[in-house]
């Protein structure tokens, strides 16, 4: 009898704890969306931020976030792909490879603020790039590389060896086999990995405050020449992102509507991450079906 009572009590406790976890998430989402969404408007999403008066938007920050994300993916994807291919297809099973794997794991477990500080030291100070989009994109690349590499490696390794043997037995080089046979099959997994990493990169702030900077100088959206200072595409201008903006106005913001702006920006950020997550699931599943089932 006693064991049964304990069983019931324990189950009750577990249910209670789990409910708390679910409630926390519901509260978080509810809070952000209820407080933030009403503040989101076309004007809010497109107009520049204000430092002292109410009514500022997040237009530049939003653009900066996406621009940095795209640059980061452009830099990190090729490197991660090469590294993933090396680890899954070429790396011999020995202590050197082991050490390489440990090193990548170390990089993935470094606090993002440390990665950001390194980027600051190397690019902002040493290479005299100043607070700039390119410094930020490279810092985010360092932050993104280990996870992306691992997800690519896993996707490639999950492809059955039968496919490798098929390629090799036809006299295809290993490289061709990987790039033309294995890679397309692994693509759904790789894309899912990229989108999930995009979500992480999009919300990252600590690695950016000392690399891409905390200011968003006015951008002239009519000027698409990347060599001009106020062009949106200029990679040497400082660029505060959405996530950094939220941090900034909450620590030293003095505009009267700091709270509403933060809520609106947080809602945008969370919705973006949600969309990335859903997209990853949807596109991954769809591509997978397309590649395996033919039509």
């Amino acid at each position: 009898m006693k064991a049964k009572t304990i069983d019931r009590i324990a189950t009750g406790i577990i249910y209670a704890l789990v409910s708390v976890v679910v409630l926390i998430l519901l509260f978080l989402l509810g809070f952000i969306l209820i407080k933030g969404v009403p503040h989101i408007s076309w004007k809010f999403l497109t107009s520049p931020a204000q430092a002292f008066i109410a009514g500022g938007g997040i237009g530049d920050q939003l653009f900066n976030s996406f621009y940095l994300l795209i640059l980061t993916l452009l830099i990190s994807f090729p490197i991660a792909l090469g590294a993933g291919i090396y680890l899954s297809e070429y790396a011999p099973k020995n202590w050197v490879t082991n050490l390489v794997r440990i090193t990548i794991e170390v990089l993935s477990s470094l606090p993002s603020v440390v990665v950001g500080l390194f980027g600051f030291l190397l690019f902002v100070v040493q290479f005299k790039l100043g607070f700039s989009i390119i410094s930020g994109a490279i810092a985010l690349t360092f932050f993104n590389l280990p996870l992306l590499t691992r997800s690519i490696e896993n996707s490639l390794s999950a492809v059955p060896d039968l496919q490798r043997e098929a390629g090799l037995s036809l006299g295809l080089s290993k490289w061709k086999t990987v790039t033309r046979v294995i890679f397309p099959i692994a693509l759904p997994g790789i894309i899912t990995g990229i989108i999930l990493s995009a979500g992480r990169v999009f919300g990252e702030a600590a690695a950016l405050i000392f690399t891409a900077g905390q200011s968003a100088p006015a951008i002239n959206y009519a000027d698409w020449n990347p060599f001009n200072g106020t062009s949106p595409l200029n990679i040497f201008r400082p660029a505060e992102t959405l996530a950094v903006h939220i941090w900034k106005i909450n620590t030293e913001g003095i505009m009267p509507d700091a709270n509403q702006v933060s809520a609106g920006a947080s809602a945008v950020l969370v919705i973006a991450v949600l969309v990335f997550n859903l997209l990853a699931r949807f596109i991954g599943a769809r591509l997978y079906r397309k590649i395996t089932a033919g039509k």
């Binding site: 059955p160 039968l162 496919q163 043997e165 098929a166 390629g167 090799l168 037995s169 036809l170 006299g171 295809l172 080089s173 046979v181 397309p184 099959i185 590649i291 395996t292 033919g294």
Partner: peptide
Amino acid sequence: VYQMRRRIGMVFQRPNPFAKS
């Protein structure tokens, strides 16, 4: 080996067509 394998073809235990047409 690549040239050689074109002269000595191989078929495996489990069918392994490429995920292509």
